[in-house]
């Protein structure tokens, strides 16, 4: 028999099998929560993300609909979690913006030092980010962790809109290289 695969569990969940949902939850709780927490930086928001994500899984429609065209299940589930997280972040910010719309973009500019300090525990990703030039760190932060629009990234970083996509891609590629190097160094130790 062995452990059911993610796909098997997903299919059982679509048949409204609660035990399967629980198994799926146990399998992914920590990983998904960590991602949501990294993005929202708030335990309550992160829990809200978890509720949303598992609701989507249970309903299996729209954003919660998985098929093999969407790639590996775990990658897909992480994408759903990221999207749900940045969506929630955006909604919470919209509420804040009603108070002070003009300054909103200013607040988006992360201080790289602060970002690093905020990470009580450093991890591979932080280390790899750390070795990137500030501008590249900022591109990744605004694009991946904040989910800002191309237009907003261009404003915040004072870059022409047309160059944003290329810069993000470059920063992401560099990040991947750093991650790969780190792995090698670690294994060498």
């Amino acid at each position: 028999m062995g452990k059911p695969t993610d796909k098997e569990l997903y299919e059982r969940i679509q048949m409204k099998d609660k035990a399967a949902l629980e198994l799926m939850y146990d399998r992914y709780e920590k990983l998904l929560y960590s991602l949501a927490y990294r993005i929202t930086k708030d335990p309550h928001f992160s829990e809200e993300v978890m509720q949303d994500v598992f609701m989507k899984l249970w309903n299996g429609k729209g954003a919660g609909q998985y098929n093999e065209d969407k790639g590996k299940f775990s990658s897909w589930l992480l994408t759903v979690t990221r999207n749900t997280s940045i969506d929630l972040l955006r909604k919470k910010k919209e509420v804040e913006y009603q108070w002070d719309e003009r300054d909103s973009l200013q607040e988006e500019i992360p201080s790289v030092e602060k970002e690093v300090e905020d990470q009580e525990k450093r991890d591979e990703l932080t280390e790899a980010m750390d070795t990137l030039p500030d501008e590249q760190q900022r591109m990744i932060y605004l694009f991946y962790f904040q989910g800002l629009s191309q237009q907003n990234i261009s404003k915040v970083c004072e870059l022409p809109v047309g160059t944003v996509k290329g810069r993000i891609r470059l920063a992401l590629k560099k990040l991947r290289e750093n991650l790969a190097t780190e792995r090698r160094v670690d294994h060498g130790k």
């Binding site: 939850y25 709780e29 920590k30 929560y33 960590s34 927490y37 335990p43 992480l78 591979e124 990703l125």
Partner: peptide, 21 residues
């Protein structure tokens, strides 16, 4: 897609599983 796999995992708050499900 694999960026989250390089993040340090944090412990979810107590009782979250019951609340979410």
């Amino acid at each position: 897609e694999d960026l989250p796999l390089h993040m340090k995992q944090v412990d979810p708050p107590e009782g979250m599983k019951d609340r979410v499900l």
